[in-house]
Design a protein around this nucleic acid. Structure first.
Lengths: 218, 218
DNA sequence: GGTCAAATGGACTTCCGGGTCCTACTATTC
DNA sequence: GAATAGTAGGACCCGGAAGTCCATTTGACC
């Protein structure tokens, strides 16, 4: 509970570069560990050790574990959105969407589908346990979907997509296929289901393309 | 570790009806609690209290928490497959698929999208932490998908689906849409994304229908 | 170089949750 | 109805993880 304001610390406090660097190290370590082990299965001692800090520093920068986790939600959300902005911001064609798909699949294939999506797994782990984290995650998903739907809007405006295509719904469907793909790939330890899922979603979007030549209808 | 045989207890042991009922009560309580709070966030004391049993009974029927969780994976898997068999076993038409979709959406809308899929959330929570649970879950997903793909096969064989439809891939895509839908709905506390996701997948399957009348191509 | 707040190290406390154990009750079999 | 094994209650133990505290060092600013 406490402050609604997240950006500004409770007490106006000078933060030195060194302090900021420590905080960053902690978040970075928590991010790595909690990605592979899950949030609840990662202890603060794990984080302390991996970040080469001490208990007092953890509690100097974060009120308690819950606050650290919430900070991680923001941190990871920002990372993902930044990465996705790179791949989606100038999306204007179907082939751009394919490239985006390939990048995600390739990244996930590096660990054979393990661990899934950093946001998706947090969403499942935290949604029923930390309302504030849940709503942040929900907003992050919305922002991510918006990057997609903005791209689809551009495609529709430029005439690449038919006017009856609904960018918002397509983006939601694509996001669900992505998240479900991550989940199945994680369970199977194999990226294949993720590929199939994304291809289905892309095929569906493809069906809204305005065909330049006389290709078959599907 | 231990026996591979799951059905038969380590030692041939008489099991009375009363004992079986207790075991069932424990599993039922664990199922309920872990569905809403998650596996790791549920303590054995919670389970003990909810099942009106005692510590010794827990440890009489299950070696440790991990074994209880694994038993729960089987239990929940059996429940889901049983339920799904009901809805999918005699699937022969697209409208049957729509009915199936509606049932899932309605069930999940009862709690506004909260908690997601009992199997999906376990898959995420356990995949990186218990290899045996992970593989059981993976098999359960496979069996679930097979119920779907079998139905699609029947539709294809009867001429409802075009010959170039790939039941296995369609089933995987549909499952991913379902799981991703659950996830987004859980994060948003709103079933809407689940509906959109499933509708996208169904639309895609619809595009493989052999059209009886002269409907639009999409 | 003196002052003060921030940053840090790490021992220490507390408590919760998993797991053990001992005792007693119940039911089936002979 | 005695014997035996399964069932049950719940106090207790123990480790680990969260969280506290305080002495010390570092660094910024005058």
């Amino acid at each position: 509970m406490g402050d609604e304001q997240v950006a500004a610390p409770t007490k106006q406090r000078r933060i030195s570069q060194r302090g900021a660097a420590t905080r960053e190290r902690i978040l970075e370590a928590a991010n790595r560990l909690m990605f592979v082990r899950g949030v609840n299965a990662t202890t603060l001692d794990d984080v302390r050790e991996a970040s080469q800090t001490s208990k007092s520093q953890l509690y100097h920068h974060f009120a308690d574990k819950q606050e650290l986790v919430r900070a991680l939600v923001r941190y990871r959300g920002a990372l993902v959105l930044q990465r996705e902005r790179g791949g989606l911001e100038r999306l204007r064609s179907f082939s751009g969407l394919v490239r985006w798909r390939n990048a995600l699949v390739q990244a996930n294939s590096l660990n054979n589908g393990r661990h899934g999506c950093g946001l998706g797994s947090m969403a499942i782990e935290l949604s029923d346990q930390d309302e504030q984290a849940r709503s942040m995650l929900s907003e992050t998903f919305a922002a991510w979907e918006k990057l997609i739907s903005d791209g689809l809007h551009r495609m529709r405006d430029s005439g690449a997509l038919r006017p009856d295509a609904d960018p918002e719904k397509l983006a939601t469907g694509l996001m669900a296929a992505l998240q479900g793909g991550y989940l199945l790939a994680n369970a199977a330890h194999d990226v294949a289901p993720m590929e199939v899922a994304l291809d289905m979603a892309l095929d569906h979007i493809k069906s809204f393309l305005v065909k330049p030549s006389g290709e078959p209808t599907r």
